[in-house]
């Protein structure tokens, strides 16, 4: 195991106030540590000097909860492909490196503090239709509805999204299309999701727009940044589903508003 000496440029900000980069020297960082463990070490040192540590979001630290974020050297979750910040390890860096650490930046993700942002917009999008309206206790036997393996596997590909927001942070327009298309796509593809397909699609897309996410201009930075490698073909599907839903809505064949469990 070797040690790294790093120069960090860390974004510091309190909610509602302007932020700035702070220079923090980070000597003697074990290369076996994860990126977040490096942040722990840095924070421990700040605390020992009586200073306030850098706030950042994290929880499971095994790449599944989607809580960790951070723009590392301009890339969401850092340089390693298909890897969340919590699973990025310091051996991917060299001693003497300068590392820029910023929050995910998007109008719809306001900064709470330092590297912590508010991603509740994603929840509101899902509340606008990202579900199948089924009551607990009502369903038939699980095997009464055969679903081909290919369809089930494709739905699972979309469902692998961890809702971290890297797609938004990677996009120059701060578009949430990859996230929305993955969630809508999973349910729109499955037979259980068909009855509400139009309501769901219209509801989620309109809520996305309302939250202030930008438009998709098909540059596919999102796919490259996605730690779960969600494919942009879901965006294609969402565009198709949306066009059809809007058409049917225009001809009076669908309900205008999605959502609600009534």
């Amino acid at each position: 195991m070797s040690q790294l000496n790093l120069h960090l440029k860390v974004w510091r900000q309190n909610a509602g106030q302007p932020g700035h980069f702070q220079d923090i020297e980070a000597p003697d960082i074990p290369d076996h540590a994860s990126f977040l463990e490096m942040m722990d070490i840095v924070n421990e040192r700040l605390i020992s000097k009586g200073q306030e540590p850098v706030a950042f979001d994290h929880d499971c630290r095994e790449g599944i909860c989607g809580m960790c974020s951070m723009q590392i050297n301009g890339v969401p979750h850092g340089p390693e492909k298909a890897t969340t910040t919590c699973q990025l390890h310091m051996r991917k860096f060299r001693t003497g490196d300068t590392i820029w650490i910023e929050p995910f930046r998007a109008k719809a993700f306001p900064v709470v503090k330092d590297l912590v942002v508010d991603r509740y917009a994603f929840d509101r999008i899902q509340q606008a239709g990202g579900f199948v309206t089924v009551r607990t206790g009502a369903p038939q036997d699980a095997n009464a509805l055969p679903i081909g393996k290919e369809v089930a596997d494709a739905a699972m590909d979309a469902a692998a999204c961890i809702g971290c927001g890297a797609c938004v942070a990677a996009c120059k327009n701060a578009s949430a299309m990859l996230f929305v298309s993955a969630k809508a796509g999973q349910l729109n593809l499955l037979p259980q999701g068909k009855p509400e397909k139009d309501r769901r699609t219209l509801g989620m897309v309109r809520q996305m727009d309302k939250e202030g996410f930008g438009n998709c201009t098909n540059q596919y930075e999102c796919e490259a940044a996605c730690p779960k490698e969600i494919s942009v073909r879901w965006i294609t599907k969402l565009n198709r589903d949306y066009a059809m839903a809007a058409l049917r809505e225009g001809t009076g064949n669908t309900r205008k508003e999605a959502g609600g469990g009534d």
Binding site: A138, L145, A152, D153
Partner: peptide
Amino acid sequence: VNIIDQCVAQGVPFAREYGGML
């Protein structure tokens, strides 16, 4: 047994066999 029925109805993508069964 009810749990599996419920989750499938919600659209949980459980692994399936080629015949479409769980």
